[in-house]
Write a protein that binds this DNA or RNA. Structure first.
Lengths: 210, 210
DNA sequence: TTATTTTTTGAACATCATTTAGTATCTGTC
DNA sequence: GACAGATACTAAATGATGTTCAAAAAATAA
């Protein structure tokens, strides 16, 4: 009964192939200007085939975002439970992770941050929406655990850990989106890394109990 | 020669009327799901007429964003030059302004934060792009002046004021976007106000020289 | 080899954003 | 007050593109 399993594998492979093509096109054109036809062309498939694997354009795009979120979670899990470093140093590693992901594929990350808007969410199937919820919750809980550690050790101020985690994530997305759009608006160089550095410095400083 | 002036006024009025209709529809549906036909209907005009006043859908939307940005600037200018309060108190007023604007029309603000992305900016006419640049720069320079005052009075850390202003704006947009999308994802209540409060508390604390 | 199931296709369809040819309204002139 | 020209608007056509579907192709089972 190996045939069924091979077919499953091939199905998964085709899905990946479509996502890889989509990543290229979305990355080059952004969500609205990317066409399903171009994605299909890039994947060497007909447009109709994509709809056998993804409910619609939004869902295809969301699947890419979920992948990135998962990647971020994996990277964070590598250090959140380490005992040889404190919460402040873990904040530093969080920042490094965020910068790495940004540098790996800026456009897809920017698109992820854009995605989280009401109009998109309503076009997703229940399963993908659930997956997105789960993956976001996962990433957020990793961040929360760092903050919680800082609070419990008496290093950080006693605010609600979830609120602080939200602020970390919001600062990340806000800096990426705003600094990037400023770059586009003024044809200036990319200051995302430097701004994230400063933002984290301020934030960690602000977290510290006095 | 009052006729020419009346016509100018009427033209401006029609423009405003289209924008008000667009505000309603964009606010209810978001950018992608709002149709030009619905906006035209709301304004009691035919779709074609809209194109006599706005180059395209993106430009109509951007005009709303410019209005909000201008409003934010006006509000900020009311207190940035006051001598009876210090930079920390001005940060507090900045936050209040941001919360007011959010509460006045959340969706339009969220759309503003979403739409300053590359794909949109390339669809704008040179004039509107210039206007958007100018208005953003205006709002940012008001924020920058608060930060600069704080640094010069020895209250805030000696970072580049523009970077700090960017971080303030980025935090605002990031918190609004992320907390709102979290609300949609989990059907929870609106925590934007509380989160902005905490974020500003952390930020001001982080800005302070030790 | 044949029947059945699975996978893919590409043309058809539907939904808009946008354009345009034509119509109505207004303005200035005689 | 009628007429010519300019201005403002409309309704229908156009084109782009997301999505669906009937048919073809490929794979599998009998």
């Amino acid at each position: 009964m190996g045939i069924h399993e091979r077919k499953q594998r091939e199905k998964e492979q085709r899905r990946k192939q479509i996502m890889e093509a989509a990543r290229k096109v979305f990355s080059a054109k952004g969500f609205n200007r990317a066409t399903m036809e171009e994605i299909a062309g890039e994947a060497e498939l007909s447009p109709g085939t994509i709809y056998l694997y993804f409910k619609n354009k939004e869902e295809l795009h969301t699947s890419l975002s979920i992948d990135i979120l998962e990647y971020i979670s994996v990277q964070m899990k590598k250090f959140i439970n380490r005992h040889d470093i404190n919460a402040e140093q873990k904040m530093h590693l969080l920042k490094d992770t965020f910068i790495d992901v940004y540098e790996y594929d800026p456009m897809v990350l920017i698109n992820l941050f854009h995605l989280q808007s009401g109009e998109t969410l309503t076009n997703l199937s229940a399963e993908v929406l659930e997956e997105l919820k789960q993956t976001s919750a996962d990433a957020l809980s990793a961040i929360t655990s760092v903050v919680t550690e800082g609070i419990e050790r008496g290093l950080f101020v006693e605010k609600h850990p979830v609120a602080l985690a939200d602020i970390i994530w919001a600062t990340y997305s806000g800096v990426v989106l705003w600094v990037d759009s400023k770059r586009l608006l003024n044809n200036e160089k990319d200051f995302v890394k430097q701004t994230l550095d400063t933002a984290f410095e301020i934030m960690v400083n602000g977290f510290k109990r006095k």
